[in-house]
């Protein structure tokens, strides 16, 4: 298998994630975009692991860690979003900007 395909796919996924994080107003969608970026990293790790034929499979192990961290992160993030919605009746990130100067 060609590593370039994998990397290109990972880069594409990462870019979609960046776009989502920067351009979306909905906080749930921003969180989902972060998941996309993390998964792009996972793809890179697994791809390199296969490419180098690493006996220790460290790339795969790291991607498992990242999946675990991502799950925890989404748990915390959704809880915050839920609380914001309860108080402000909105989850638009550009309207939640009280923490400034």
């Amino acid at each position: 298998m060609n590593l370039a395909w994998l990397l290109t796919f990972g880069a594409f996924l990462f870019s979609v994630g960046i776009y989502g994080v920067l351009a979306r107003k909905n906080a749930v969608l921003v969180l989902m975009s972060i998941e996309l970026m993390l998964n792009a990293v996972n793809i890179n790790l697994v791809g390199f692991n296969a490419w180098f034929a690493d006996q220790t499979a460290s790339g795969q192990i790291f991607s498992l860690f990242i999946i675990a961290v991502a799950a925890a992160e989404v748990g915390v993030g959704l809880a915050i979003v839920l609380l914001i919605f309860r108080r402000r009746k909105t989850i638009a990130v550009d309207e939640v900007d009280l923490l400034k100067w």
Binding site: V21, L22, V93, D97, L99, K100, W101
Partner: peptide, 12 residues
């Protein structure tokens, strides 16, 4: 200080 807008997406 005006760089600190409170907008998370600008920080990102």
């Amino acid at each position: 200080r005006f760089l600190q807008t409170g907008n998370v997406q600008r920080y990102a």
